[in-house]
Design a protein around this nucleic acid. Sequence first.
DNA 1: ATTGACATCCGAAACGTTTTGGATTATGGT
DNA 2: ACCATAATCCAAAACGTTTCGGATGTCAAT
Lengths: 338, 338
Amino acid sequence: MKVTLKTIAQEAGLSITTVSRALAGYDDVNEDTRRRIVAIAERLGYQPNLAARHLRSKQTHTIGMVIPLTSYFSDPFFMELLSGVGRQAAEYGYDLLLSAQQPGEEELSAYRRMVASSRIDGVVLARVLVDDPRIAFLKEVRHPFVAFGRSNANDYPYIDVDGATGVYRLVGHLIERGHRRIAMILSPRKLAFTATRFEGYQRALHEAGIPIAQQYIVESDLTQEGGCTVAQRLLDLASPPTAIVACNDAMAIGAMQAIRACGLTVGRDIAVAGFDDIPTAAFTDPPLTTVRQPIYDIGRRALDMLICAIRRQPLDEAHVLLVPELIVRQSSGAPLIR
Amino acid sequence: MKVTLKTIAQEAGLSITTVSRALAGYDDVNEDTRRRIVAIAERLGYQPNLAARHLRSKQTHTIGMVIPLTSYFSDPFFMELLSGVGRQAAEYGYDLLLSAQQPGEEELSAYRRMVASSRIDGVVLARVLVDDPRIAFLKEVRHPFVAFGRSNANDYPYIDVDGATGVYRLVGHLIERGHRRIAMILSPRKLAFTATRFEGYQRALHEAGIPIAQQYIVESDLTQEGGCTVAQRLLDLASPPTAIVACNDAMAIGAMQAIRACGLTVGRDIAVAGFDDIPTAAFTDPPLTTVRQPIYDIGRRALDMLICAIRRQPLDEAHVLLVPELIVRQSSGAPLIR
DNA sequence: ATTGACATCCGAAACGTTTTGGATTATGGT
DNA sequence: ACCATAATCCAAAACGTTTCGGATGTCAAT
């Protein structure tokens, strides 16, 4: 048998109103009766019906995240973000509603559904695009959200990692090691972080007086396979690079595969570096030099910001920019001797 | 402005009932008016209020999963399961409600809340315990659920991997390689799969006529650090093992750390093997021999079963047992020469 | 005795949907 | 002309909660 406010009210000989207010802790109910009601509720194992509560109060205590099916799920990076968000949501007593979706049209409609059907109080979104329809939509309907990443329009709360500085330091590190022919494997241009990471690459080369060679700039799809394929192309160049920087660890690991397949040794014949510091990065052979994004903490802080947005509190910092940490491991090799 | 059935009804000059039934596809509404209603709904961007729908129809189209905070989140294994479940849920048009919880009392109450507050139609649970209060609870209240793993009481739908056979083959492989002093790092006894995996170990040794030595049986907590610590103890034995089998990959990787720290080489001086085949396993140095659990597919199949349970359809197979695959990599080394 | 203030309680409406059990009209058969 | 049937529509109740606007009773101050 379902136990509702009505059940308790009958049991206590009181009205539903009083029971509701007693349990909610209003001060217009006698302390004794309040205790009695609470005792009864406890005894009967009362759990409020959240659908009813949501319907009435328009608050769901639920955070929504849409997970694009291709590649992201099973993307350790995305999962780590999810962990952070989930962890912090629990802290606030919020739950997480996940909707797995095919990217593209489907994805946007998932947001529409979530928002318009009032299932959630706020949204965390990741993998921001340069021109992101999801952000446009959420801004338009004025639904609370926080993004992990900056896009073109920056008039929304976000938290991001300073990819430019990260790659700048990474490439600087390689230049210090004596590299001058440094290639970069970019992520798809439509992703917002691609440009900033590329900017770091350019700045580092520029300051070192190294011209940028178009042949060393390639683009792939963030997957290991993709990284392997384009690295192959780089190795086939007449004058192949001595170092390869990838926009994420997965592609860097793919590049390492390609290099090994050529009979070369990563870290000795050619340096490789990634971005993210996924757990696997510490265990590749050789371990991968990379730029660490504190992604778990980013998830937690994103949620902090979102809670503020939901409560319509002014954010103390609507734009958080974290400086990532350079993690030097063996894949960037010993100083190059020429 | 919120657009509800009422909005559409007014716009169309019809009743709320008719609009509802038209959109739901009942056949007692004229095809022309149905089309007209659908058009209006489309134009106004109508999205049903799910709280209201759930309240009335007692169906949420949502699957619940509780994620114990310690160790599981950021556990690649668990995340992979989540992916599979999420993926398949999307296939059925279901969403996933995650509730991160401290394990223990809190955790059980999370289930209580989810179930009694009627937020979800079904539950997927993982990491089954030998004597699992969550299962007892869900059975008692007759709430649809599917577990990944068998516990003592088996009168509930589950999907599991035949850990006994997996470890049996793994240990058999090591015996073939010439090992006779084979240690095992067990997971906590309260986890249901510990016993079955241990059973495989015992059977393999028994068939090979190798006595079981208590000193080679140690227990740890599924973490890399834990595996490292107990492996240390094994290496300090007067007659240390020549092979170490761990109940999961994380502990095996920890054991590899301990071995390296002793100045020994994994795969040459001592063999190591794990269980799970997490993504990292392929990239350790040397790559880890392990038993693969098709965990993503397990998630998908678990969800298939759950949907059946929710629809109160009889399950064609209430108990699914998958045979895991042995993945031989370099950590189990070359044949031992004595 | 009247008033005001306060403490404590409650009826009824509202949230947006689904569903029950007709009501109304049109159609065809006698 | 009448009835049975089918097609199409709808009013109202229900789901369980929160909240608005009192209602009632008590007690001290006038």
